[in-house]
């Protein structure tokens, strides 16, 4: 088997012509022809209101904009971090209606009427959330870039109300990667904040 020397154009054209299931869609028995991207639909801007850290925020959004980019680039809430932008690192973890999700995988235009909490909304004024205080005390971070995601994920975990021993904290926090390797300290911090240290 040999691999042809494809130009980027050939691949993109071929890609555009490919059917196949995504999400809950049927691809059909045959691939259908998608019009070339030379004539793209001009995306409608979506007007969306989300409740963000307790405040209603009206946004005008390109449908492609992720919640993560909406937070960082439009609202200048840069506490939520972009690590991989593909749901594989957890740095962008926020609470959506109280549940932890990867903001990079959520199209913000779908969130009308939903409630989002980010790291900026976790403390009570100057009073740090117990998780935040515990992360400082246990040195649960080094470079700090995964930290908001770790803390929001831990906040989501505590909301879930599971019994938590060290092993289960590790399992349930495994969606949050820390390349500095602060894991043992993060686990200690979460144990303390969950009242189990």
């Amino acid at each position: 088997m040999t691999i042809r020397n494809f130009t980027r154009r050939e691949f993109l054209r071929d890609t555009a012509a490919t059917g196949g299931a995504a999400a809950i869609a049927g691809s059909g028995g045959k691939a259908w022809a998608v019009p070339a991207a030379a004539d793209p639909p001009v995306p409608t801007q979506h007007r969306v209101t989300i409740r963000l850290n307790g405040t209603e925020r009206a946004l005008q959004l390109d449908p492609r904009t992720s919640l993560l980019d909406a937070l960082r680039e439009q609202l200048y809430l840069t506490g939520t971090k972009k690590g991989c932008d593909m749901g594989a690192c957890g740095a962008c973890t926020v609470l959506l209606d109280g549940k932890r999700v990867n903001a990079c995988l959520v199209l913000a235009a779908r969130l009308d009427g939903r409630e989002v909490k980010t790291i900026e909304g976790l403390a009570d004024g100057d009073q740090l959330h117990p998780l935040q205080a515990a992360f400082i005390e246990h040195d649960g971070f080094q470079c700090g870039y995964c930290t908001p995601g770790q803390i929001m994920s831990a906040a989501g975990l505590l909301n879930e109300g599971r019994p938590l021993d060290e092993h289960s904290i590790r399992e349930w926090m495994s969606g949050n990667i820390c390349r500095c390797g602060a894991y043992p300290n993060i686990v200690s911090a979460i144990r303390q904040a969950s009242g189990r240290a």
Binding site: T78, G79, E120, L128, Q132, F135, I136, D139, T147, P148
Partner: peptide, 12 residues
């Protein structure tokens, strides 16, 4: 504790 800890845990 780290002097930059508060900034890092608040997203600041």
């Amino acid at each position: 504790s780290r002097v930059d800890g508060r900034l890092k845990v608040t997203g600041g």
